[in-house]
Design a protein around this nucleic acid. Structure first.
Length: 554
DNA sequence: CTGGGGAGGGGGCCC
DNA sequence: CGGGCCCCCTCCCCA
């Protein structure tokens, strides 16, 4: 009996324990749910705060960048400041995008209008850059293609055509209101505003294509007239300038209105007319027949009548389809990248969407069929910042190269195809397309195993050895293996004793660049080292091998 | 020194 | 035969 009572007791205990356990579980679940909700709320709030702070930071950087631009801008050439928008993302970018407009001495960029930064509201307004030519105006009615980026970067692809003469200079102060007005429009419309039959912009058929960048007139940007959107910008991601004398004038235009309309209405197609790197891929997107992916057709068909005319005017802003002989004039707008633009997204988020958009819509997307790339990978903010740094550091480099050799295109093989950003010449359109990714930041090749993205397929392929561990390059004199062929070559200096880096101040030589750098710091002192570097930058040494190696470290 | 990314050039293949 | 396309090599640079 006692045993029976004990069993009952134990049974009751067990049932009580079970009930208690269930209650505890329920309580825990409830607490977890509550905490989760609170946590989510906190995350949301933190994200909002982060966006606000980042926007403030971008605006401050923009101001700094603008001050830099104003302080360092050469008097002879006005900079196309439509790239100023980049500075929102990175304050130090002005040097990079300046390369975009270095092209010709005759070019004068009209940049009379200030950037308006409303820090309180987070609204930034960038005004129109007028790129036009005096003779274009003199020649008669031209076409102005202007662009305004409204608050919604996904819109603003209107095109207006006007007679160049008789269009009153715009009032910059109207821009903000205009931008807001534009927001509600369907921006992908094409307008004829000139009343000049010869100045009709057409989207499908072309009797004559003119890609112009005209400069030097007194045009003032007009936000109200600037409704070109991505089409009106210099097609950053996709164009190149054909250097030389293109004979045929039948051109496939990238201004495929159908595509534009599609993309313009597509919520996924985020446009920014500010020349931020995120925007640039846009050109790539909008200028290409996305439905066909006929990127190469587009690329090979684009040329610039005005890319290098008799007067040495080199810059092409965009391609316009014009009927008639009147040379069009162009106004290229800056953008409004502000509160409205953000619509809850900050700049980086916005840029990210652009990249993703490119990844999904660009003709480069077709490369997925051949390459192990993941086009849908969206970069994180941090990655985006890295991307920006890469873009503009590279941009500086490209500019330097272009200044040294680009426009001259004096290589053995004719380099007819010019980068529209830095005017560097290339022998074929694909090279230009790849090169322009330096400026646009387009990196269509993504590693499937990590976040890395690449502008060149071969670099992705090389990178993937990091994951596979494949090291196909082995040293013949030791057991070292390398994934980089250049790493092997560099390694072999260990065996050969080769010291290709020589100190210009003494006779010491080093096998590695880093050694020379360290040596220079000790040898000259940090400050003197810096001064020497500056001198070397200004006066590059002769191209002897030893000096060449040193030159490379400057 | 090594690892590894950025970017340009050359050459082969195909249409 | 020329151009487009692709791959590879190479140099440079930074961590």
């Amino acid at each position: 009996m006692a045993h029976f009572n004990g069993m009952v007791f134990h049974t009751q205990i067990a049932s009580i324990m079970e009930v208690l356990a269930n209650a505890a579980v329920a309580e825990i679940c409830k607490l977890v749910d509550d905490d989760y909700a609170v946590f989510r709320l906190e995350i949301t709030q933190s994200q909002k705060e982060n966006r606000a702070l980042r926007r403030k930071l971008q605006l401050l950087e923009l101001k700094v960048a603008r001050e830099r631009v104003l302080s360092s801008r050469p008097s002879s050439v006005k900079i196309l400041d439509r790239y100023r928008g980049i500075a929102r993302g990175e304050g130090h970018l002005t040097g990079g995008h300046r390369s975009f407009v270095k092209l010709a001495g005759h070019n004068t960029w009209r940049d009379d209008q200030p950037i308006t930064v409303d820090e309180g509201s987070g609204t930034s307004t960038q005004h129109v850059i007028v790129i036009e030519s005096a003779d274009a105006e003199a020649a008669g009615p031209g076409v102005k293609q202007e662009r305004t980026e409204g608050e919604d970067p996904r819109h603003s692809t209107d095109i207006q055509t006007r007679a160049a003469a008789g269009v009153a200079p715009p009032v910059a102060t109207e821009e903000l209101s205009t931008a807001s007005t534009l927001q509600s429009r369907t921006r992908c419309s094409i307008k004829e505003a000139s009343g000049t039959p010869n100045a009709i912009l057409k989207s499908e058929t072309v009797t004559e294509t003119q890609r112009l960048l005209h400069t030097g007139s007194d045009h003032i940007s007009d936000p109200e007239r600037l409704e070109l959107g991505p089409l009106g910008c210099p097609a950053p991601g996709s164009e190149y300038i054909l250097h030389g004398n293109p004979s045929p004038r039948t051109v496939h235009s990238h201004l495929d209105s159908g595509d534009v309309l599609e993309t313009g209405n597509d919520p996924s197609c985020s446009y920014s007319t500010a020349m931020d790197p995120g925007n640039m891929p846009l050109g790539l997107e909008t200028q290409t027949d996305l439905s066909t992916g006929d990127w190469n057709q587009y690329s090979s068909s684009v040329y610039s009548e005005g890319c290098q005319d008799k007067k040495g005017e080199v810059i092409v802003v965009d391609e316009v389809k014009v009927e008639g002989d009147a040379p069009p004039t162009w106004n290229v707008d800056e953008t409004h990248l502000g509160e409205g633009h953000s619509q809850g997204r900050d700049f980086l988020d916005y840029r990210e969407s652009l990249e993703t958009n490119i990844a999904t819509h660009s003709p480069l997307h077709t490369l997925r069929d051949r390459e192990p790339v993941s086009m849908l990978m969206g970069p994180s903010d941090s990655h985006g910042r890295v991307l920006f740094h890469q873009v503009f550091n590279s941009n500086d480099r490209a500019r330097a190269q272009a200044q040294g050799e680009g426009a001259t295109s004096g290589s053995s093989k004719e380099k007819r195809f010019l980068c529209m950003f830095c005017s560097k010449g290339f022998s074929c359109p694909q090279k230009v397309e790849i090169h322009q990714r330096v400026h646009t930041g387009v990196k269509p090749f993504s590693c499937t195993q990590c976040h890395m993205r690449f502008a060149q397929a071969c670099n992705l392929k090389r990178h993937q050895r990091v994951h596979t561990g494949v090291k196909p390059f082995s040293c013949t004199q030791c057991h070292m293996r390398f994934s980089h062929s250049s790493s092997l070559k560099r390694h072999q200096t260990v065996h050969t004793g080769e010291k290709s880096y020589s100190c210009p101040q003494c006779e010491k030589r080093f096998s590695h660049q880093h050694q020379l750098k360290m040596h220079l710091k000790v040898h000259m002192g940090e400050r003197q080292f810096v001064c020497t570097q500056e001198v070397l930058r200004e006066e590059p040494p002769p191209d002897t091998p030893a000096e060449k190696t040193f030159h490379s470290i400057t």
